[in-house]
């Protein structure tokens, strides 16, 4: 009995040795994967910075960021209108799209019958895979004429851009929020219901707070898609390098000016486009930071 136990414990320790090595190798591999992801980010950032920073040294950071005069051929590199454009369409798209998407996610996970859910959810996910140029077509054919009829002007401008982007980010935000909401344990819902809470009280007070982190992640990803989106925005925005005076005036974004000028830019002009890329990266990062800080302070309250 005792000897048997000892033999068992020896083979047990051998087994553990073997397991420990396997564990270490696995840790190493996973660490390496994480490094590659981070390294990619660092390299891209460094590359864009190296190529773009010289223009800030040459034209002046303040000058570039505060001027709207974009005449690269004449050596004037004011990019404020693009920053405003990107900022405006992203914020507009989020304001329109995020509530819609979270609403859709709540409907899908809390209210829809299994049958409705089994049809609508794949449809929403499919929507996330549609190429952005197709959304651009939709914008040009459907949204722009409606905006023109309602607000006057050409219809190509901020409002159309926000609407098209909002439609584009809804599936991303909805699909990820829906996962977050569905993974809230059923016990929370039942516990709340068992105290006489209505379904809406349960959703508002228990389910949404419990799914908060996941919903914030979803909004961050949607935001990332909005701020970086180029093609669809390019097609409906009108692309004038000015700060739009009104909601249906043409505008440009950081992404749209890069794609429009890149094919022929050279010298300082090209460097300036890299500079714009750098600003885009920083803008995108500050959006992520802003959303995180906003959601954290709301939790604290």
């Amino acid at each position: 009995m005792l000897a048997g136990a000892r033999a068992a414990s020896i083979s047990q320790s051998e087994l553990e040795n073997h397991d420990v090595i396997k564990e270490r190798v696995l840790h190493g591999l996973l660490f390496a994967s994480a490094c590659v992801a981070v390294l990619g980010l660092v390299l891209i950032f460094a590359f864009v910075a190296v190529r773009g920073v010289p223009i800030f040294a040459k034209a002046g950071v303040v000058q570039m960021l505060s001027s709207t005069d974009w005449s690269p051929m004449d050596g004037r590199f004011g990019i404020l209108s693009f920053i405003v454009g990107s900022f405006a369409v992203t914020v507009g798209a989020l304001l329109l799209g995020a509530p819609l998407a979270v609403g859709a996610a709540i409907f899908l996970s809390e209210i829809a019958s299994p049958r409705v859910r089994s049809i609508v959810k794949p449809a929403v996910e499919l929507l996330a895979g549609i190429p952005s140029v197709v959304y651009g077509f939709f914008g040009v054919i459907v949204v722009v004429p409606q905006v023109r009829a309602l607000l006057g002007g050409s219809g190509f401008g901020l409002v159309s851009g926000c609407i098209v982007l909002a439609v584009m980010i809804v599936p991303t935000i909805a699909a990820i929020s829906e996962d977050a909401i569905s993974s809230v344990p059923r016990g929370f819902r039942e516990g709340s219901a068992a105290m006489g809470a209505t379904q809406w009280q349960t959703i508002k007070n228990v389910v949404l707070p419990a799914a908060r982190t996941g919903i914030v992640d979803a909004v961050v990803l949607g935001m990332g898609r909005a701020v970086g989106e180029t093609m669809a925005v390019l097609m409906v925005l009108g692309n004038a390098p000015v700060i739009p005076r009104g909601p249906s005036d043409p505008a440009s974004t950081l992404t749209s000016i890069i794609i429009l000028d890149m094919p022929y830019a050279s010298g300082d002009h090209q460097t300036a486009l890299f500079g714009i890329g750098l600003v885009l990266l920083l803008l995108s990062m500050s959006f992520v930071a802003a959303i995180r800080i906003l959601s954290r302070s709301r939790k604290a309250r």
Binding site: P185, G187, E190, G191, A210
Partner: peptide
Amino acid sequence: FQAPNPFP
């Protein structure tokens, strides 16, 4: 309930 389910 069977499993304690305090809210987070």
